[in-house]
Design a protein around this nucleic acid. Structure first.
Lengths: 149, 149
DNA sequence: CCTGAAACTCCGTGATT
DNA sequence: AATCACGGAGTTTCAGG
């Protein structure tokens, strides 16, 4: 997969604002719209482009608490059964199988601390196979971005 | 901020694919394109929409390792100076100030384990004020999504 | 908060170099 | 891999209910 300067400009532009018209990118770079169009198809075909997404600001909806949770599992539980439960919880945004002490590591958003307690005690701890959790609350997020090509 | 069923449909559609034409959403719901357009402006004005982004598949570029790193800082170091250094590293995707043992908690992507060692030893540990780190490698990510309205 | 229509802009494709 | 050209489609705005 070769990515030249023009590809980078396309990617940077659409990473910043996915609705930027192809034609305006084309004008900026100084090539035709069709050329940009072709390159985008090429990038999509190469699977370099995962998706185009509207990013929601959850804070406006009242979800102002981000929490990372390390989860310890019983030895005899099936990992996939726990993941399945977690997938049913919309507040679980990420789930990783990790090295280290935890079996899995998840990222969750909540409305506030009360909501957090509720999620931890009545949802996560109630999942069959979960025997201990360690929570780490993000008080402030100072970096949030994609890898810049 | 009130969000009704039509708003939800718009958001769900554009969260999945930000390039979905307004008109096709309009047809699906059974209202005019202008109505959807107006609602989108309303949602943007309310800051509910953070951005529209092309999401890059970093794995195709060779970045196949995701790592979470807990960072301990010297007591006398300025947090902002460390964050500033981290911002200069494109491989640092998130940085959180958290409760718990760590001062800050970061998410990083690397090409492979060698690259990881390089990032840890020659970059992060070399930042003034960082005195200890704990790394947790994600071997597999089974959930990755936005909060579904 | 909706609609329809007009004016404008863009998209996707095919032919060509 | 780029260009031009074109017909179909989408966007934006505005008057009006």
């Amino acid at each position: 997969m070769k990515i030249d300067g023009i590809d980078k400009k396309i990617i940077r532009s659409l990473t910043k604002d996915a609705r930027t018209p192809i034609l305006s990118i084309a004008r900026e770079i100084g090539v035709s719209g069709a050329a940009i169009h072709q390159r985008l198809r090429k990038l999509e075909k190469a699977k370099l482009i995962d998706s185009y997404q509207m990013i929601i600001n959850h804070e406006v909806l009242g979800y102002s608490t981000t929490v990372f949770i390390g989860v310890y599992l019983d030895n005899d539980v099936l990992l996939s059964s726990v993941v399945k439960r977690l997938k049913e919880m919309p507040e679980v945004l990420e789930c990783h199988y990790t090295t280290g002490n935890f079996a899995i590591f998840i990222k969750v958003i909540c409305k506030n601390n009360n909501d957090l307690v509720n999620v931890l005690e009545t949802k996560i701890k109630k999942i069959k196979g979960v025997f201990k959790i360690e929570t780490m609350v993000s008080l402030n997020q100072s970096i949030d971005r994609q890898y810049l090509i």
